[in-house]
């Protein structure tokens, strides 16, 4: 164990005190730097935020005000009726539980499988691993529509129809996740692995004890991504689940979009509701990513 630390302490140790000094310096004399950075940030935020603001304000408008002209930003008669109709339109509390279950399990499996695969792709040098990397990329290259019908037949033949497993398992392998971990582990110096090997550490324990903890920011980032993907999945859960007690949130939201007309105020309300868990996950996980002080030189 000690040897694994050695190559990192060399450049990490002097970094630490300086870093403290710098952050102190920023708080006292940083105004000159804070002004342009903050201005830039908020110009961008305003550009991005305008549609977002309209989206959120509009969800409080009654249906009749939504498309009135001249355009208005602020609702004249704010109402929660869109939210209430949306919430009552389906058994949303059950749907939230189902979707959470699916998202949590899939995300754990995705992060685990991607971490293992990404590490193998980055740190082992075999021809067949390179080929497998191309194979993984290939999974993103067929349009979803063409895979839908054959994939349904496969999952049905596996006996997974109308079960959460049928929703979860096909979603575990993601190219993005494997790719993220591969690229991350490429930046981890090989010397770290070699040193551990010299120390007599076993291959898988190098991975589990040294590499997995290092990749925590990537894990959390992938967890946010995976949660969003699964939360917003619609067509696959709809085809796979037959029992309304197993339906997911997006199935409930899509039922607001009718054949001939869309009740926009209800749809906007439902969209806001369904977004809240994702924002919470994002905030919590991002805090760890931002707070993780990976000061050690990972790349020499």
């Amino acid at each position: 164990m000690t040897t694994t630390d050695t190559p990192r302490r060399i450049d990490a140790d002097p970094g630490r005190p300086v870093s403290k000094k710098r952050s102190r310096g920023a708080s006292s004399g940083g105004l000159r730097r804070a002004v342009p950075a903050t201005t830039l940030l908020w110009i961008l935020a305003c550009l991005y935020g305008l549609p977002v603001l309209w989206f959120i304000l509009s969800s409080f408008k009654p249906a009749g005000d939504l498309f009135s002209y001249p355009l208005t930003m602020v609702p004249h008669h704010p109402t929660l009726s869109g939210y209430l109709t949306a919430w009552r339109s389906a058994n949303f509390s059950q749907y939230f539980i189902n979707t959470t279950l699916v998202c949590v399990i899939t995300t754990i499996l995705t992060v685990g499988a991607s971490c293992c695969t990404g590490y193998a792709l980055a740190k082992y040098d075999n021809k067949w691993l390179k080929a497998f990397f191309i194979c993984i990329l290939a999974t993103t290259m067929l349009p979803g529509e063409v895979m839908l019908a054959p994939e349904f037949l496969v999952v049905r033949n596996l006996g997974l129809y109308n079960s959460f497993a049928g929703v979860i398992l096909p979603a575990v392998l993601t190219a993005t996740g494997c790719f993220m971990f591969r690229q991350f582990f490429l930046t981890v110096p090989d010397e770290l692995v070699e040193a551990a090997r010299i120390d007599g550490a076993r291959e898988l324990s190098i991975f589990l004890r040294i590499m997995v903890p290092l990749s925590r920011p990537i894990m959390l980032t992938l967890a946010i991504l995976s949660f969003q993907w699964r939360w917003n999945d619609y067509i696959w859960p709809l085809l796979m689940l037959n029992d309304p007690d197993k339906f997911t949130v997006q199935i409930g939201i899509q039922s607001i979009v009718g054949a001939q007309n869309i009740n926009w105020s209800v749809l906007l309300g439902a969209s806001v509701i369904s977004m809240i868990p994702l924002i919470v996950i994002f905030l919590v996980f991002q805090r760890y990513v931002m707070g993780a002080d990976i000061n050690a030189g990972l790349k020499d």
């Binding site: 293992c116 993984i136 575990v172």
Partner: peptide, 14 residues
């Protein structure tokens, strides 16, 4: 061993 899970998933679902 590390890629086993994804290989199985790849074969089945892709």
């Amino acid at each position: 061993v590390l890629i086993a899970a994804n290989v199985v998933l790849f074969a089945l679902f892709f």
